[in-house]
């Protein structure tokens, strides 16, 4: 299905080559890197690219899951199967533990989400395991603050991002030098778009959680977005539960993952749907809707 023209790569192969190059730079430049795995398609692609980058050796870093405790169950099953299949080490950072230890305070109210609390747990997990680089699946097309992100994103000893003082990044030379206590976030799929990700999943036949395909689920509507009904979700009296055929366009914490009404049950259909869609994938993410600079602010504090 794929033609390589003489000495010319198609764009997916070129993006793949770039990402593999970045992943190998991480392994070479850092002592103790880790891959942030959320169970979503972008981090699944990162794992796939990592396997390709180091094969026949195993991937030289553990997977880290920052677990909000508010997951789609399918994500956890998928996570455990994948780590077993590739023989990787899994480290789980628990938001519930951060709350129990008094390091984070649970939000209350209707829009309560543990998305923000993830930052505390993430920074704690990085510190506890002495990770000097955390690989994430952020893409520049996702959000306007991310459009200015580097492949190698420097963070100070508090894990903060300083958008106005980023290191220039030239050619394919990445500067991972740092002082004690500082670390990096690395984004190997920076240049991929949502469409590239789906086409790559299709081209490489990569397994993804069933949540991405159409299924029947209890949902309710809030601010124009379908959310999954779950025991820890507080509904307003006006928010009625319905059973609909839906699928996830992104997978995050259940409290802020919008679901799309869809009948797509194959990758081809998902791709068709995305080609025709008129809303960005983060349009369904309640965590981005908090303000115009919601992502920028979270990233400054250490969110990935």
């Amino acid at each position: 299905m794929e033609q390589i023209k003489k000495y010319n790569l198609n764009h997916l192969r070129e993006l793949e080559a770039e990402s593999i190059y970045v992943l190998r730079e991480v392994a070479a430049q850092f002592e103790n890197p880790a891959l942030l795995f959320s169970g979503g398609k972008d981090s699944i692609i990162l794992v796939h690219l990592s396997v390709k980058a180091f094969w026949p050796a195993r991937i030289p870093f553990p997977l880290v899951h920052i677990d909000t405790g508010h997951n789609f169950e399918e994500t956890i099953v998928f996570r455990d199967e994948l780590t077993k299949k590739i023989g990787a080490q899994l480290i789980v950072g628990s938001v519930q533990e951060s709350i129990d230890e008094g390091k984070a305070v649970e939000e209350t109210g209707y829009n309560a989400s543990r998305n923000l609390l993830q930052t505390t747990t993430l920074l704690d997990t990085i510190e506890k395991n002495k990770f000097d680089a955390a690989i994430g699946g952020g893409r520049r097309d996702e959000e306007k603050a991310r459009a200015k992100e580097r492949f190698f994103s420097h963070r100070d000893e508090f894990g903060q991002w300083d958008p106005k003082n980023q290191r220039p990044e030239l050619w394919n030379i990445f500067n991972g030098k740092k002082n004690m206590g500082e670390n990096f976030r690395v984004f190997p799929i920076s240049n991929w778009t949502e469409m590239d990700v789906w086409q790559y999943i299709y081209m490489e036949n990569i397994d993804i959680p069933d949540l991405y395909y159409t299924h029947v689920r209890e949902v309710f509507k809030r601010d124009g977005v379908w959310l999954a009904n779950a025991p820890f979700m507080t509904r307003k009296p006006s928010e009625k539960v319905e059973r609909l055929r839906v699928r996830c366009r992104t997978i995050g914490d259940i409290s802020c993952t919008g679901l799309t009404e869809s009948m797509a049950d194959s990758l081809e259909e998902i791709i068709q749907e995305i080609a025709a869609t008129r809303i960005t994938e983060r349009g369904g993410r309640a965590d981005d809707k908090r303000s115009d600079a919601a992502m920028e602010d979270r990233k400054k504090e250490g969110y990935f």
Binding site: M1, E2, Q3, N8, N10, H11, L12, E14, L15, M195, Q199, Y202, M203, E268, I271, Q272, A275, A276
Partner: peptide, 12 residues
């Protein structure tokens, strides 16, 4: 008309 096949064969 969107074609998956054509998309796979694009240049960057």
């Amino acid at each position: 008309e969107f074609s998956s096949k054509a998309y796979l064969d694009m240049e960057l």
